[in-house]
Each structure stands twice: as C-alpha cells, then as structure tokens.
C-alpha cells in the first residue's frame, strides 16, 4: 500500500467503497483516509458530550497497539479534551480549524442533552451546536460507548436533560453521515481501535441493525459464557460470589451482544462474569434505561420469599 501509484490507490479505494456499500460518491473521501493512514496522519477529532471520560480512559488501556503507537502510527489526534495540550482559546482554535478544513473522523463520547442545551457547553458554545458543526464536516462519525451509542445512563428513565444518542440527535437534525456505533460502558479498547483501523484501512466494517460492527457485537455473551455449562445443568448461583450460572442473580448475558467472554478486558485479564459478577448488559440498547429492569435480582428474591412465607 505504501508504494501504490495514485491510479492503483484510487482503484483500491473504489473496490473498498463497493465492498462496504458506500457507493461511488464516497470514494474520494475514503481515498483521503487511506492516504493519510499511509503517512500515519489520518486526522481524528474527539468530542465529549455528556460523558464520564471512561471510554477515553479505556482507550488508554489499549495493549497492542498501545496508546503511543495509536497516536504516532495510526491517527493524528487533532483534538481531545482530556489529552490535548492546547487549552482554552488555543484548543478551540485547533478544533475550529479542523472543522473548517473537514475530512476527519469524528469520535464522539457521551450523549447529547437535546432538551437542555445548557447542560453541556464547550468554549461558550452549546455542545449540541458544536456537535452539529463538527459532524457536518466529518467524513464519518464513530459513536463511542453506551452514552454516544444509545443514550446510556444520561438518557435513562427520569433523566432531566432529554439526553439522546449521537445517531438519534444527528438524524433529528438531518445531518446524514455514516455512523458506526460502539456500545459498551465503557467501550473495549479493542472494539474502538479495531474499528478505527478497519475504517482507515478497509472502510466501514459490516454492521448490525444498530450500526455496531459485527466483528465485535455479533454473538450473545450468554452463548460464549464460561458458565454456560452451569446454565445447561441448571446449576445457578444463589448469592454473590457463589458458584454456578449467574442468571438468577440477574445476569443479562442472554440479551447482550458482545465478545467479552472471549476477548476479556484489560489485556486479557478478566471480565465481569469471570469475576463472579452478573453481566449488566452495558453494550445492549436497553442498558440502564428502565428502573423496571434492574442489574441484579436480589430484591425480587426477597420479595418472593416474603410473599411465599
């Protein structure tokens, strides 16, 4: 790829665009992405709305490539509120110059306070406006994590800000951009880095109906669970730290699509169910949305017990 002629390069890009269903109009843009990748300079702008920065911290837990390699070999991280040395007006100048030039990848962390624009302000501008400006000029948008992906906890029942996912908000405002959704609370660094590299090298990966890459979110947690045999034998954990399938403690593995049981977290160290904790469904669209679907089932058991006694 590094020694391609321009002609070969455009042919290659066209093939990729066809493969990923983006059509001919997308070719020049992806071509630009490939060129900038070849020089390690694919510009990426990272915005944070109603976020906890947990997805940013998770990105820093990337192992191979590690964060320094990502910054020096894959992307040119033009702006990131938690990492950029540039602060205040200087930071805004970098951000605005990028928006003016366009053609970057936009990564968005956090939900959008659609019904209360005052609930998120950056550089004296309501975040909602800034996001529309930044998304309009972007090649593509990556909605990182549960909040950007599906609204997450800021978008849960009883929330006061009318928080929306990035896709819902952009659709509502007629900003049509290719959007990749990477749910999870936080996002797994492999899901994010793997997707970015795929977009830059091969275009948009195959996505499920919600816009999440199938290569990470195709299968149910339950189907890959190390305690699946306990489930089949109806050997259920009765209390926290007990052995057995965690289903009766509220495990949401049966309704959650992610590859955590195979991929594991923190450089292959562990994951929720291995640590005896029921899956709380953090990559599911329903994550934390309703009080009527709690993470754990302890209280119901007690009430059942009381009702039966």
């Amino acid at each position: 790829m590094f020694s391609m002629t321009r002609r070969q390069f455009m042919t290659y890009s066209a093939r990729l665009a066809a493969m990923t269903g983006l059509g001919a109009s997308a070719v020049p843009k992806i071509g630009l992405a490939l060129q900038s990748l070849a020089s390690g300079q694919a510009p990426l702008v990272w915005l944070q709305g109603q976020s906890c920065s947990g997805c940013s911290v998770s990105l820093l837990n990337a192992a191979h490539p590690d964060p320094a390699s990502i910054l020096m070999r894959y992307i040119s991280l033009q702006f990131h509120g938690t990492l950029s040395t540039a602060t205040g007006d200087l930071g805004m100048a970098v951000l605005n110059a990028n928006i003016k030039q366009g053609n970057y990848l936009l990564a968005v962390e956090g939900s959008v306070p659609a019904a209360m624009p005052e609930a998120c302000v950056i550089g004296a501008e309501p975040y909602n406006k800034l996001l529309l400006r930044a998304a309009s000029a972007a090649q593509a948008v990556v909605a990182v994590g549960a909040c950007a992906g599906f609204g997450g906890i800021p978008g849960a029942e009883n929330n006061p800000t009318g928080a929306l996912s990035v896709k819902e908000f952009l659709n509502k405002n007629q900003v049509g951009k290719p959007i990749i959704v990477l749910p999870g609370c936080p996002v797994h660094p492999d899901w994010l880095v793997g997707t970015l590299v795929h977009v830059l090298k091969f275009g948009v990966p195959s996505l499920n109906a919600d816009g999440a890459p199938l290569m990470f979110y195709e299968r149910l947690v339950h189907d890959q669970c190390p305690r699946f045999s306990d489930y089949e034998r109806e050997h259920f954990a009765r209390f926290f730290s007990d052995e057995g399938c965690l289903f009766k403690l509220g495990c949401l593995g049966p309704v959650t699509h992610a590859d955590c049981p195979k991929r594991l977290w923190n450089s292959g160290t562990n994951f929720c169910i291995n640590a005896g904790a029921p899956c709380i469904g953090c990559s599911a669209k329903t994550f934390a949305q309703k009080a009527s679907l709690p993470f754990f089932r302890k209280v119901e058991q007690i009430k059942d017990k009381a009702a039966g006694a």
Binding site: G49, Q50, P113, M116, E118, A119, C120, V121, I122, Y127, I153, P154, A156, E157, N158, N159, P160, T161, A163, A288, A291, P294, F295, F296, K298, V299
Partner: peptide, 18 residues
C-alpha cells in the same frame, strides 16, 4: 462546571443495588 446529567434524579426509584 459546564456539564450536567442528573444522576441523582435518575437513581430515584431504582433498585438500591443499581
């Protein structure tokens, strides 16, 4: 402080273990 989500309101009415 320029960002508000309303966690204390979202927590109200939920299971304590949440």
């Amino acid at each position: 402080g320029e960002m508000f989500r309303g966690f204390e309101l979202i927590l109200k009415g939920r299971d304590p273990l949440d």
